[in-house]
Design a binder for these strands. Structure first.
Lengths: 335, 335
DNA sequence: CTGAAAGCGCTTACAG
DNA sequence: CTGAAAGCGCTTACAG
């Protein structure tokens, strides 16, 4: 691999001149610059990243911290998220380092920071271990969560408003005349996202004079069978829901299957809105709430870049990404 | 951030002693070592990665090159793949740098190499641009593909044997007495994986005296609608297939839907085997060919680690990962 | 407009 | 068993 010294020799100049030419700094005659750039091209020279990092004290890498393997009751390593981060990062000349939250003594994230490997951090999911965030804040090290963090953690974050989205979907049912509405959570209630969506659902009911009935709520785990079980429970009720808000696509498909088995047609007998407008929702013509993961990822990375370029400590910021309901076959509001 | 000098001062020793203590090199009295390690813990010291990289000429990072965004007619950023790579890499003390194949003038992969940011490379999909591989080979730089590369490229690679898997699935149908078997490719025929699966299917037919009939073959694009269209085509035939080999889960679901609509029962009227034993296949009780992406990723990373540790040029290696058929409701071989 | 020199934080021969 | 010193490949004041 060519070094700056090789280029300098090839072009017949000092290594400082090469540095100037490459970084566009200093003052160089057009002729010298051209001569140097030619040598650079000829030798396929690229400045060594370690040397640059050492001398400048800055490294052009951001870390992406994935949840501990096994936590994934949905798939987090979403293509949209990864390429969203990648698009923004590469536009700013940054690389992405992948790492996993290990729940070990010292978090991997902190190691990367202390080794000077990263200049900022994005977290896909809030860690259970809030200590990491506290330490990062103490160091004034920039980081952004791509998910709403638990109360009291002092973080930058970007996410959709899950409560609001659930509220609006439920409201949309109510406006269409539904008075008995089922809710299936996307996962266990320990997850904030489950609690927030439930809260939005509940709030819409109470706000419009409808009773909140626990038998119309099912704690899902995001798969087909769980959706079947939910609908099973709902159909066994004396007065069954005429509309269901599902927390995940697979839940929605399980619900549809049970409906079909029972001879209930959708949307006539049971209307359905599901979270997540994924390809699956499109394929199956499901009315779906768009969770724009690519946008979340891009905005989070932009926010991180902003925090990186502000060396002085600043207040944590959060960005709420709007989420739209995409109306399809399983429910359309009456006009 | 603490430097080696801070630790040396804290422990009252030279910086060389600190380096010895941390790396387990040199010779140090037990007492000195203990004193140093205490200072390290107290100051939360971690050696600066840029400095280590510069002085040793080695960096503990491997690159993962993702396909150009938009190529993904399946989802490549599979959780299993990412955590498979991550598990092996972190066991060996390596980090993972994510990058995208951009189809630009100079490939991102080569930039990373020339900047000294990575010590090895894994590619999720073969690039269209074989020049990159040639250049890497010329530099004797270690890289591994997690997918069978096109003929003539001189690469290390790890993959399942798609031709063999398709052969065995087709054979399994034939042994059960099927003589008219449909094939739906996972994607366009430009993809090697599509061609190989078709070849395996064809070979099984010809090997057992069955005619190869193009009207029983459909070029799918991996989604539900494509599966519906395939089955539509098959049902319009004078003699329709009694068994179908589907290249992707969504194709299989589309096929099942069309069968149900037409009053054909599965597996009685139409038997079905699909590629990819994903959660979807489990949820829908599909007989499926397991493509163990996690295993592919782990083996590829292990192979890369081996190549990294062998400084001398060596012959390219390939590893074939076995793939099993998981029998479920949509087809079970007669005993 | 251009070059010589210091220094970033480490590791590793080399002396003692 | 321990320390002083050179050097990895860059950038950036500082002279000229």
């Amino acid at each position: 691999l060519a070094t700056i010294r090789d280029v300098a020799k090839e072009a017949g100049v000092s290594i400082a001149a090469v540095s100037f030419a490459i970084n566009g700094t200093g003052t160089l005659s057009e002729e010298t610059r051209k001569k140097i750039l030619e040598a650079v091209g000829k030798l396929n020279y690229r400045p060594n990243a370690s040397a640059k990092g050492l001398v400048s004290g800055k490294v052009n890498t951001i870390g992406l911290i994935m949840p501990k393997p096994g936590t994934d009751f949905f798939s987090f390593a979403d293509n949209d998220i990864l390429s969203g981060i990648g698009a923004v990062a590469s536009k700013m000349g940054f690389n992405i380092l992948l790492s996993w939250d290990q729940g070990k003594e010292e978090s991997n994230a902190l190691s990367l920071v202390r080794e000077g490997m990263v200049r900022g951090l994005t977290f896909l999911l809030p860690s259970n271990d809030l200590d990491t965030y506290r330490t990062l804040n103490d160091m004034n090290f920039p980081f952004v969560l791509m998910s709403k963090p638990p109360e009291g953690s002092n973080c930058n974050w970007v996410d959709v408003d899950n409560m609001d989205a659930a509220y609006r979907a439920t409201l949309s049912f109510i406006k269409a005349g539904h008075t008995r509405i089922g809710f299936v959570s996307p996962g266990p209630m320990e997850f904030l996202v489950s609690r927030e969506r439930l809260a939005g659902y509940k709030w819409a009911l109470l706000n419009h004079g409808l009773p909140y009935d626990e038998s119309c709520v099912f704690e899902g785990i995001g798969n087909l069978e769980s959706g079947r079980q939910a609908m099973q429970q709902f159909m066994a009720l004396e007065e069954r829901p005429t509309a269901v808000l599902a927390g995940a696509n697979m839940l929605a498909l399980g619900i549809l299957e049970k409906c079909a088995d029972a001879g209930l047609s959708c949307p006539l007998d049971v209307a359905l809105i599901t979270f997540d407008n994924s390809p699956l929702a499109m394929d199956y013509n499901l009315t779906a709430i768009e969770i724009p993961r690519g946008t979340i990822a891009r905005e989070a990375t932009n926010l991180l870049m902003k925090k990186i370029s502000q060396p002085t400590r600043s207040e944590p910021e959060s960005i709420i990404i709007p989420s739209e309901i995409v109306y399809r076959q399983t429910f359309t509001p009456s006009l």
